[in-house]
Design a protein around this nucleic acid. Structure first.
Lengths: 354, 354
DNA sequence: TGAAATCGGTGTAACGATGCACTGACCATA
DNA sequence: TATGGTCAGTGCATCGTTACACCGATTTCA
């Protein structure tokens, strides 16, 4: 069962390998219909499939799109990776998955490795404010799509971003809590040094200020800067935050905006440890709307990211722009997040009021 | 910034490309120490990195290990994929991830594609009783490691399996419920046509019989055969099961063994819809011990799979056996699962007793 | 001492696909 | 009938690496 090469096809069709190559590379105008048919027949009869390695060696490219996520161990990224694979498959591409653990150095290494291995399109789920660490690869021609990180002013021209409007998301979440009568609302997050996270935080601040409240008056969780928390440990962050915030009754909030659902769920778990009931005692709102948000008890109110659609957009930007090397500037997208109200947020209870 | 090739290194070290190639391929005995050092110096100075495509084209292999999981959208598989990547990285390999959606046809296609693309080691998270659909590739030399699917009697010799003992797992889970006084225990699963699932089911049956109970007397959920439920929809299965089982008070169990944590969580959600309380009213036990099991309210009792260790074993079997083409028969592993008792399982309440 | 073995290293032909430069054959125009 | 242009298809060098066959110079041993 030796490999079927382009030569075999050529021989079977009675043409030269070059012609088969032309056929395969959409230069079919260069041949008469009968030839085209013979080649087509030969291909399907022999079950020919082009050798990727040879192709890549020859023209320095792959049909693979790179996907760098913080960690598929986190259900949100797992779900997103899944959607990306589905979308890429529909376009005939495979996906090479890398977990950066939100480490800029690993991010850089992965991007470089992918580039050197012929991957010309990468979906990078980074959240670093600057893309300096990969800019040299972008200059060489990498098609970079960033996800969950809105375009920044000094990003290279060619970079496309697919993201929700995190600022709006933060506002919507906070406004929802304000409407429920909460006036003591904490913001819980791990390291906040990422673009989307600070945008969510700003949204939170904006909403508070619009309601005439001062951020400074809100309970603050000082564990925020713990930078050793990766994405897998997001739940631990939430749990720790609950412990800390409620240690002192004076700082205890009546509601919390968590940076994402995993952190929110961890926070809920922390509340439970303290004998508090989510919803009734403390309202909790998350971000992402992972499947588990709906499964939780109580079901978690969350700001949804439409990942299926986002994955499709990201993949089509990555692949389709990758193919026509052209002038198409590509279009960054900022989707509107959607608030999904469930039962983890309730009217502020009179008992909890000061 | 043209690519650094083996020729450049050879030139810089004052030797022929062949010698550099020998150096790179651990045939260093074939040269004197001084030469070795010069080559080493040249490589690091020029920052040379071998071109994968060329290598692969030349000798028909990659340094990539294929990973086929049902779906990274499921947190268990996401976590596993993550662990596999970490383990592979430590051995200098990258991971190509594929989601089979538990579709045998997709499984076959992926395995074939990977093989044709030069991937010689695949970790296949299948659960099909038979490996016929990929046996022709195995015969050609594929190193296959199956995960979460114990070795079967008529598996090809070369196939290695990494799995927990699902039968024991089923027994342990069921015995735990029996000890808590439950005598009406249902088994909830989506399609049960997989090796590990039927093993868990048998464990459940064995434990019941050992306790002098008859499986036939247990509440049965007839939605089991719904084969359109993939891994992502596992939670939906659980939810539907809860709805159905409690529709008729006569079939209502006091405890449930779920095929995995996602199904268990879905089941809990279903109970909640019905106004029942997990633990107090109905005990629920899951499988896998995903992170979310501990986060849930109440925290879910589960049969843990030690995925970190399993991923390491799988990767080392895949890679290390892949490298020495030799006679090493490889060793299948059947790990003992560990019961993690939390709060979703309680003593059967007197109220719920007949 | 001469034949053989060993050592350290090199030359070269692949691996399979690609795309530019080219070739005949045919047609149209002047 | 030259001249040039299109059409359909081909030849060949090339991408970077590898492994086998080979080679000259020492060393070994009978």
């Amino acid at each position: 069962m030796a490999r079927v090469t382009i030569q075999h096809v050529a021989q079977a069709a009675g043409v030269s390998p070059s012609t088969v190559s032309n056929f395969l590379n959409d230069r079919q105008g260069r041949m008469v219909a009968a030839t085209r048919d013979r080649i087509e027949a030969a291909i399907s009869e022999l079950g020919y499939r082009p050798n990727r390695a040879a192709r890549q060696l020859r023209n320095g490219k792959t049909q693979t799109v790179g996907l760098v996520v913080p960690s598929v161990g986190n259900p949100f990224w797992g779900a997103f990776a899944h959607e990306v694979e589905v979308a890429a498959l529909a376009l005939g591409c495979s996906v090479l998955l890398c977990n950066s653990e939100r480490d800029p150095e690993r991010e850089r290494r992965y991007v470089e490795e992918l580039w050197e291995d012929g991957v010309r399109s990468i979906i990078l789920c980074t959240s670093l404010p600057s893309l300096d660490h990969v800019s040299h690869v972008i200059e060489e021609g990498l098609r970079l799509v960033t996800f969950d990180r809105p375009a920044q002013p000094n990003d290279p021209q060619s970079v496309v971003s697919i993201s929700i409007d995190n600022n709006v998301g933060g506002q919507v979440a906070t406004a929802h809590l304000l409407e429920l009568g909460h006036t003591s609302i904490a913001f819980v997050s791990g390291s906040i040094r990422s673009v989307n996270r600070s945008a969510r935080y700003r949204g939170y601040c904006d909403a508070l200020e619009a309601a005439g409240l001062s951020v400074a008056d809100m309970p603050q969780w000082t564990g925020m800067d713990a930078s050793h928390f990766g994405d897998v440990e997001a739940a631990e962050v939430g749990r720790a935050a609950a412990r800390d915030l409620f240690a002192d009754p004076k700082t205890a909030p009546t509601a919390v905006v968590a940076i994402n659902d995993m952190t929110a769920l961890g926070f809920c778990r922390g509340l439970r440890d303290l004998g508090l009931k989510v919803g009734r005692d403390v309202s909790v709102i998350g971000f992402d709307d992972i499947i588990l948000a709906d499964l939780y008890d109580p079901p978690l109110t969350s700001v949804r990211q439409p990942i299926t659609r986002m994955a499709q957009l990201a993949v089509s930007e990555a692949i389709e722009r990758g193919s026509n090397e052209s002038t198409d500037p590509g279009s960054s997208v900022l989707l509107r997040p959607e608030l999904v109200v469930r039962e983890s947020t309730e009217h502020v209870s009179s008992a909890a009021r000061p």
